[in-house]
Amino acid sequence: MRNFEYQKADSVNAAVTAHAGQASSFVAGGTTLLDLVKIDIMQPERVVDVNGLPLYDVEALDDGRLKIGAMVSNTDLAYHPTVVEKYAVLSEALLSGASTSLRNKATTGGNVMQRVRCPYFRDGVSACNKREPGSGCAAIGGHNRSVHAVLGTSEQCIATHPSDMCVAMAAIGAKVLVTGPNGEREIDFLDFHLLPGDSPEKEHALDVDELITHVVLDAPIEGSRSTYLKLRDRASYQFALASSGVIVATEGNTIRDARIALGGVGTKPWRAREAEQALIGEPATEQSFKKAAEIAFKGATPYEHNAFKIPLGQQAIVRSLTHATAARA
């Protein structure tokens, strides 16, 4: 592994101060950073350790929202009683991601910051506009089956955002709290991850030296149920080919409110707002779900090997909505 300086921060402000520009990286769990440093895709000259920061709490706010410290591990968040009870989609999404040992290490803030799994990004030599702006995209016209998107792609980049947790957060609605040299600010979760567009090297809305301190989930929708369905090449420990996180509230058999977010198919955690709107006021039937699923993929662009993701993603929506609205004994 390349050599770098190391500093352990004991406060958020100290961490931000120690982080000296683009050549610095924060390390929390390290599951993305060290993986990518070892293959020389990330090349920090200084690593700032944020494990000593007091960001390990999950706090219920008076307004019904849930404030999650950036250092809360994926395991601890998945099994937190409030998350299990009120945000099932998030608990299920977290537990569908990675492995037991990685979830123990991976953090809430780090998961938000995880990098794409595109093999052309990771191999260090292929054309990749994300790794080397202007070099091209080897995935377009290359092997683009499993970790490549059909929604939100551009001629510069088609890599999927790999997170399951973020899909659930996109469905729930959240704010990302960050601290930087100019103080604190909040970023809407749906604005945090950026579409690749003409600058796929810019992946998120953080400014240089800004650190994620918390994610604050919106209050749960009254009377709603939620679930996360992840479809993949093997039953466990694999990135999504398509996933669907849904939250649904019904009055009788009529849908009162609905949220749909998709993973494995988009270049960012993908909120399907038009599909949600199409559900509201409709009966909770397969026909309604199919119509919403079609709308969700209306603007999809299939590539040579991943056209199957469109029907797969639609079926994921239908099945997750069916599950979330099924009568319970």
Binding site: V27, G29, G30, D49, S101
Partner: peptide
């Protein structure tokens, strides 16, 4: 490479010793 750190299993290859 899995080991226990403070009673929790982690991948020791993805953690810096200094942490």
């Amino acid at each position: 490479c899995n080991v226990h750190v403070n009673g929790t299993v982690i991948n020791s290859c993805l953690s810096l010793a200094v942490m």
